[in-house]
Nucleic acid binder design. Sequence first.
DNA 1: ACCGGTCACACACAG
DNA 2: AACCATAGAG
DNA 3: CTGTGTGTGACCCTCTATGGT
Length: 530
Amino acid sequence: MLDTVEGQYGDLLLPEETGFLEAYRRLGFDAQCLYVRLISRVGPWFRELRLHYPELGAITPAVDDLLQAGLAEQAAGLSVEDLGGLCSVAELSTLYATRAADKASLLQQISQVESSETGALDTLIAADCARVIAPAKTDVVNLLQLLFFGNRRQGLTDFVLSDLGVARYYPYALDRGQRLFPRRETLEAYLDCAACEDQWHVLLEQGDEKGIRELAVAMSCTAIRDPAVQHRWDRLYNRVARQLERMGESQLALTLYSLSQRHPARERSARLFEKVGAHSQAEQLCETIEAQPWCEDERDASRRILPRVRRKLYGGSTSRRRDQFDQFVLSLPHSDVRVERQVAQKLSGDWQQVRYVENQLMTALFGLAFWEQIFAPVPGAFNNPYQSVPADMYEQDFAANRRELLDSRLAELSTLSLDVELPNRWRSYQGFQCRWVNWRVISEELVTNAAAVIPREHLLAIWQRILFDPRENRRGFPDLLALGSRPGDYQMIEVKGPGDTLQDSQKRWLRFFREQGIPAAVAHVQWSDD
DNA sequence: ACCGGTCACACACAG
DNA sequence: AACCATAGAG
DNA sequence: CTGTGTGTGACCCTCTATGGT
Ligand SMILES: [Mn+2]
Ligand SMILES: [Mn+2]
């Protein structure tokens, strides 16, 4: 990891960071291993006496090595809480010759005895005849990890899971010359946003409303953001503003939403305008939205809000035509089994098979059909070898960034036999991590059957719509897929129990299916026993 | 980004 | 003794 | 009746040693 980061980002490392690289490389092998062990554990403090790593030989020289290199530090004091983390109840009882009902009260007693943090530490060191240490420079390691992975979620465990084969990643071409952080300033901008996110999480967890307001004000003061991290800020704006809404801080929420260029900022703003009685502003914003919606979900929301607002402004009534979908009603008894399963069971006599697949099947077929395009080496798409999807998978320009690739693949798919091609793809890629394919659920048999029965034109239409907006259109598929034995003999069925209604994403797919002549229906369940 | 985000769904409430 | 949560491991 | 908001549960390597209650 260090070599990769140095190669890719060596020029924008600070002296402390290059210093870390040198110091680590100068360590003996055992000390290097120990350092990795320590930073992988909770800590921060460790009793040297309790470090058992048979593969490392003696611990003491390794610790000496780390201390000398400045990659570990000795404790100068220990809070009673930290002491409790390092010692079991039995050990504490012996150390302080006391007993107590539970660990908490034992520590309570100890805090009476120990007047200072050095006291607790000295007691422990005297008993252990060994040091208490913590790994140092962990913040530098975090930074290097960020540079390696391009995100803050992944870390050393991803190496292990990959080595073990628990997670296998498709060997896509990775261009380390393409940098997520071209300059130090980009990195710093990312870290600024990250710090703000952390602060937000803390405040939210503490329910600190005053702190949240202050954070919001601070966020709204810096309006100029590095474009490379703008969408990160937008996500944070939306989250904080949503919380401000709940706190009744409409104005502050509106300010943050106005800085965000990410759904649902405008939808929420329109709702807020309506709520505070600024109907003409709500109207204006809805008109803006409908002139150029950021996504279909936003457009749908606006179409609900705008007529309502206009009614309030100008009176009158506008009748909205309701969606009409193919539907039927089923009577079922109450049961522990999910309604979807019950309906599948009930319908199974009419079909070859009825599968409860929800979003999983169509997304999987999409993933299999466009695997090579998804994993194509588009600049910036892959920052590390452990990704299950390109970085821009859910961005608006995913398809635009791969236009030619996708077009030629679409042309291929319109001539290939899909009931051969899709199972072939399944076998080629089986087990490789891909966000579109849940291998646990999608069997080769299911892919084969689906591809044999669902007409090519239907699949192509569905895939085109997914490509149009991969973020939104990967959800909302009906619960059930009923397959017959002949091409074209199938139906998708959305099950609705009593009190459940179609969601916007579900309506959008159902409307699309209706337009395309794709067989789909809604099964309304009523309880037969009440 | 510190077990969170995403999805489907049940339920409550307002008009 | 039975049970549960957690950390650490590959 | 519709449109909303809110809260719940399931799902994301898996096994085991340890320690606490
Ligand atoms: Mn469902
Ligand atoms: Mn359903």
